[in-house]
């Protein structure tokens, strides 16, 4: 089984070509270059695009724009290549790269995305229950290193590979392949305008 996996939810987008569990190629880039990186990864792996049998894509949470780029690429690829796709949470992929660690993604606006009781959630870094001595990975952990380390958490160095949601993990975690139309992004926040309407602040 040949799986093309990619994730564009965070600043470091990743691509991997995995066949029967063996990583044939893996790359990192910016989200806007994702298709370029897919092309390069397939060439590096010696896999024709028509030989791709499954897609695995990161569903976030992360940057809304980056996340959408990955999902629209997956949906369109699935349609054009006629292959099934599966979504994998970017938090789950990060966690899979560092067993035992807590994944923390920068949610902008002074907040983080993380897993709480296995559920993706958004909260202020100060509200994350830090376990002294335990490991925190992801661009949010790097950004809020001070907050986490002050309370005894451990954050690997900025250049550590542990902070990257490597797409090999998406390929490994992907299950329940099906129509790409079902793949939903994990936004975890409603748009500001919707909040304004609900709070009665926006008058039309």
């Amino acid at each position: 089984m040949t799986i093309l996996a990619f994730d564009t939810a965070t600043d470091v987008a990743t691509v991997a070509v995995v066949r029967d569990g063996e990583v044939l190629a893996e790359r990192r880039s910016r989200a806007i270059r994702i298709l370029h990186e897919i092309e390069s990864a397939l060439a590096e792996a010696g896999v024709e695009r028509g030989a791709v049998e499954r897609l695995a894509v990161g569903t976030g949470p992360g940057s809304y724009t980056g996340l959408r780029m990955g999902l629209i690429t997956a949906r369109t690829l699935a349609f054009a290549l006629g292959v099934p796709a599966a979504g994998v949470s970017t938090l789950d992929a990060l966690a899979a790269g560092s067993p035992g660690a807590t994944p923390v993604i920068d949610a902008r606006r002074g907040e983080i995305f993380t897993l709480q009781d296995g559920q993706p959630s958004v909260l202020a870094p100060e509200d994350l229950p830090v376990v002294p001595g335990s490991l925190y990975v992801g661009d949010g952990a790097v950004r809020y290193r001070g907050v986490l380390e002050d309370r005894g958490g451990t954050v690997p160095g900025e250049e550590s590979e542990a902070h990257v949601p490597w797409a090999r993990h998406h390929a490994a975690l992907a299950a329940d392949f099906g129509s790409a139309e079902r793949l939903e992004p994990l936004y975890l926040r409603v748009p500001d305008a919707e909040v304004a309407v609900q709070e009665g602040r926006l008058r039309i």
Partner: peptide, 24 residues
């Protein structure tokens, strides 16, 4: 209409849902 004008984030979310069905 419920926002009284186009909200960029709302528009982007909807485009993601609609592109593939519209092409098909």
């Amino acid at each position: 209409a419920r926002y009284g004008g186009v909200v960029p984030e709302v528009a982007s979310r909807r485009h993601l849902e609609l592109v593939a069905p519209v092409v098909e």
